[in-house]
Each structure stands twice: as structure tokens, then as C-alpha cells.
Nucleic acid binder design. Structure first.
Lengths: 213, 213
DNA sequence: TGGTGTGAACGGCTTCACAGCT
DNA sequence: AGCTGTGAAGCCGTTCACACCA
């Protein structure tokens, strides 16, 4: 295919494909077609083929995609070909849940440090990690950790983000309900869980949701 | 404005606007312009005006938007004009964190029931809610709860989703890393946290992320 | 025949420019 | 003058149809 800018929407779907092909690989499946993937992912086969074709076709016509090959190609594209380290800031309820979430290492991601401002939490061991004082965020620079996860209350977010950027973090996953300002070179993805839940009622036909509930 | 289908992207942004205007309202601000909103939300002023105009202009030319008015209009549009009840299934690490998340009632959302399959958890009180056995999901039908939140391991998701639909739930927020199949009338939003984190390295220029890290 | 790869058509969302109020 | 409201233009992403290859 001739030169094409890769749509960001495509990048959002790649991890979904990766999730599935890793699973297929673990099940010992050797080959998969775009249609088979489509059924399990709720995405159209055309979309899947188009997405993959942006990076140079790596399927076999008349056959499908080699599962192992897909895993390694998508890993490469997403720069997950080596384990990436992330620092978590804020080990409250949500932070702790993230820390104990078992799904990250499947994607070659590792939460390699955890920080909190609460002296009562600092020093405690959580999921094999000793919680550090936020004052030591700057040490991240020398620890080859360049992803940040923010799970602190809204008021503190911007300051934490500033400190993370200062500490050389290159991309941030923000769970606090605030837009944060960072230099353009730093990527931020914000997940405000309440915002997703708040969107649900919109999709429910009103006849199922009388005003008097 | 003449008839226009409202883009789903607009619906995704409305809760973001709501978050901000609620905050402004609490601070006692009476009036806000699209440009002021834009600065705090990282969204262009044109976009904000266009989004709001889909529902009939409710700003004042030359002045801006009345904050209280914006709050109630967006509430109405999102069908949050009365408190909506949600049932949580799965009170593991993530489920518990969601349960204790203080941000929902700001959007007139209430987690009104919690379920788990683990008999060890059933009966325990968490955040003022007694955890119920998943066997009793069907009782939701009579309890005017029509939103569902799934926070169970991947293998169990589809079954839980089936039971929720059976129990009359109309929309689902799914935290498990699986696509789930439901009748078309039921809306599902899936948040796979690991997928967001897995996307971050892509945006980091490779020179900052040597292969040998 | 069966499934991928891809230009082209299509549709939807964003950006723009400016008309319209206050 | 200032800020909203909105048709129109432009851009981006999805869908389609079919060429291509095993």
C-alpha cells in the first residue's frame, strides 16, 4: 500500500487484536482469518484487514494470518517488543486495584514502582512493591521507567503530572477526573470511569427508564 | 439548527462538559464561554459550540452559557435528571475500588447493589452495601436497577452479561477484557484498562525507549 | 475457491468563516 | 465589540468492490 498516515483509531484497535491473538496463540491455534477475528471482537473483517494492511500486508491470501506472526508484528508496532515499565502514583482504592491487576504482564507491561503522598502507606509492601514517597518521583529518571499511571484525587493530578514529566516520564495514563496539561511531546490518556457510567443512561430508551424511578 | 443526527462523539464529550460545569456551579460561577470551557477541557471552542448546538442553542450570544442552565440541559440530554441505579457484579480488587469510588453520585449515579459468586464475600458489608449472591441477580428486575457494571474475570463475563440482560438490565459497563455479545437493544461499553496502558508505548518516540531498557 | 490487500466511494465528524444576537 | 449558532468545506476513517494470490 502507498504511504498512508495510520489513523489513531487503528492504533486503538491494535491492542484488541493483540489480546485475541495472544489468546489464540496460547490455545495453540496456528492461523486465523479476519472473519474469525471479527466474530470474537465485534469489529468488521474489512476494518481488521485495513488496519493490518497499514503496516504492510502480513497475511497469506486464501489462508489467513499466522497467529505467531501477528503477535510479534503487533508487539513491534505498539513497541511492546520488550517489557515496558510503569510507575504508579497513588495507592488508594483504585491504585491498589491497578497494582494487583494481573492483566498487564500479558502485554509485556510491568508496574515497577508505586508512590503515595500518605506517610502511612509509604514503606508498606503491596504486590511485591514497596510504596515510595512521592518526593522520590524524580528518581524515576535513573530507573528506566518511562510510563506513568496517575490514580490520585483530582486536585493533586496536575502537580503529579508535572513531577512525572520532570522525572522523564514519556506517557501517562490518568485515572483522575481532570484534563491535565503537559508538554506536547508527552502523551496522556485519561480514563474517568464515572464518565463512562454517566454515558450509559443516554443509550437506554426512555420507556425503560421512567422519570419516577 | 435543522435536523441532524447527533454524533456519538458528541455524546462522549457531554459528560466532560458536565463535569466542568458542575464544578463551576459549585464554585458559584454564573456564566461561562465556550473558550473558557475549551481551555480547561482541551477541546476546541468550535467543537464545544457545535456539540451544544445539536440540542438547540442554549447560550446567549455576546455573553456565553448560563452555568446552571448548562448543568440541567446536559443532565436532561444524558438522562441523568433523576438518580440512576447500577448493580455491580464482582467485588474483587477492581470491583471494590469502583464501589468505594466517590465520584458517581456527582453524576446522579448510585451503585445500589453488589454481587459476587464467592460465598466468602456474600453477606459482607462493603461501603454500606451487603454483597449478594450472583444467584439473586434476577431480583434486579423488581428493584428498578437497570444499569450493570461487570468487574469479574474474563472467563465469567459472558455468563454474567447474560444474567444481567435476563434481569432486565439495559446498559452495561464492562471492565473485563472480553467482547461480550448481547441483544442489540442493550448498550455495552467495555473498558479494558490494560489495553489503554498497552497503547502508551506506541506514542513514545523510540529514541526515548531504547530496545535494551 | 477462499481469504487478503487496496484504491475508490461513502459517510461522519471537525474546522472554518461568518451571520446573527446582545 | 463579543460570543453564540450554523451552513459549508475539508478531512478523516469506514465500507465497499474487486483485483490478486495461494
Amino acid at each position: 500500500m502507498r504511504y498512508h498516515r495510520v489513523p489513531d483509531e487503528t492504533i486503538k484497535r491494535l491492542p484488541i487484536y493483540l489480546r485475541r491473538v495472544i489468546h489464540l496463540s496460547e490455545m495453540g491455534v496456528k492461523c486465523v482469518s479476519s472473519t474469525e477475528l471479527a466474530i470474537f471482537l465485534g469489529i468488521s473483517p474489512w476494518q481488521i484487514r485495513k488496519d493490518l494492511s497499514y503496516f504492510g500486508g502480513f497475511g497469506t491470501r486464501g489462508v489467513g494470518y499466522n497467529v505467531e506472526n501477528l503477535v510479534s508484528r503487533i508487539r513491534e508496532i505498539l513497541k511492546l517488543n520488550v517489557t515496558r515499565k510503569a510507575a504508579l502514583v497513588g495507592v488508594g482504592n483504585l491504585g491498589s486495584a491497578i497494582l494487583s491487576y494481573p492483566g498487564f504482564n500479558r502485554y509485556w507491561l510491568e508496574i515497577a514502582a508505586a508512590f503515595d503522598i500518605d506517610k502511612g502507606k509509604v514503606g508498606k509492601k503491596l504486590n511485591g512493591l514497596v510504596v515510595e514517597d512521592v518526593a522520590y518521583l524524580r528518581t524515576l529518571k535513573d530507573r528506566q521507567i518511562n510510563l506513568g499511571i496517575i490514580a490520585v484525587p483530582g486536585e493533586a493530578v496536575q502537580e503529579v503530572a508535572n513531577n512525572l514529566v520532570e522525572a522523564g516520564i514519556k506517557a501517562i495514563l490518568n485515572f483522575a477526573p481532570r484534563y491535565i496539561e503537559v508538554p506536547k511531546r508527552v502523551k496522556v490518556i485519561t480514563i474517568d470511569i464515572a464518565l463512562y457510567l454517566a454515558r450509559l443512561p443516554y443509550y437506554v430508551p426512555s420507556k425503560w427508564m421512567g422519570k419516577t424511578y
